[in-house]
Design a binder for these strands. Structure first.
Lengths: 168, 168
DNA sequence: ACCACTAAACCGTCCAGCCGGTACAGTAAA
DNA sequence: TTTACTGTACCGGCTGGACGGTTTAGTGGT
């Protein structure tokens, strides 16, 4: 699908060169496509960014749902670790792309509200669950800016300690 | 100092209207100043953004140092909560402003690396300290996007639980 | 005389969006 | 089985406007 390739190109551009490098021409060139072709799939730059944001949220929600634990927080933790460990951390890049226009951030705000509220009352210890979710959020941030901080063994220990927090 | 007022105006513009609203003309107007006056203090747009980033980091480091606890992590937690509770959350806005140019983000990356490594080996439980710092990072993020999630009593409980993590 | 600006004109660059094409696949009547 | 038509997917040049930055001429406090 050409559409996916264009979204990939836009994300790569954002994480490699920052949000000011996100121009229609640059995205098209990176995707091996023309500007006209890009505008065929996304009728404006806004539509392109909206597409990135929507894909980001959808994919993460699916990843959470694909985990097999018994609480939302545990699934959220497992999904975060899987995403962050994979090294392909696009959340931050996409957010910087969308930050030009508050309207484009709305779906992300809504998702964030959901991620930090959902199923809290079904948790045995809601306060612990919130801490774990906050730590997940922080992990996205920290790993985006300082990829060298965590390696496999540190991730493993982090996971163990966060799971301890949830089940005690 | 006019300089501070210009930085304030730039931050307000970023958090109110997003990074694409950050133009020299708009910053000058918001600060009640002319474009020439702005360029008198900051010789380019880059210099203005650099100024915002530097002030952000300096002020937060000072806030951490001003807390009176016995470990860096406790000071970091107290500073984060103080900043976040105050409602004037500028970190997110400044970062989106700087995200246009990776070069401008370098000081922030360096600060982030520092904040999540400093004094870890002097902590009684380094893994717990990392979790607390990650949760602080997450708190910045979550509160920026969903200000209604935490109120005074939730902050208080969060603080208590995070301090528990550190001292046991 | 100098500092800290103001006001406004001006320039070059850059970029989003538009528009007139092209290539091709299917389809369906003649 | 040729012709004519339709829709989809894409190309790439163009332009109008916005923006960053410069310059110049001037103002008021100290």
């Amino acid at each position: 699908m050409r559409r996916e390739g264009l979204l990939d190109a836009a994300e790569e551009l954002l994480s490699d060169q920052g949000s000011s490098a996100l121009t229609l021409a640059a995205v098209a060139e990176r995707a091996g496509c023309s500007k006209g072709g890009l505008l065929y799939h996304f009728s404006s730059k806004e539509a392109l960014i909206k597409g990135m944001v929507e894909r980001l949220i959808e994919e993460f929600d699916e990843l959470v749902a694909a985990q097999g634990h018994d609480t939302y927080t545990k699934n959220y933790l497992a999904a975060t670790l899987a995403a962050v460990r994979s090294g392909r951390i696009r959340r931050w890049a996409v957010v910087t792309g969308a930050a030009g226009n508050p309207y484009l951030l709305a779906p992300l705000r809504e998702a964030m509200a959901r991620w930090h509220r959902e199923g809290l009352d079904r948790e045995p210890d809601p306060a612990a669950a919130q801490i774990v979710r906050l730590a997940c959020e922080g992990l996205w941030d920290v790993v985006s800016h300082d990829p060298g901080l965590y390696d496999d063994s540190r991730y493993a220990e982090l996971e163990r300690r966060l799971l301890d927090l949830l089940s005690e």
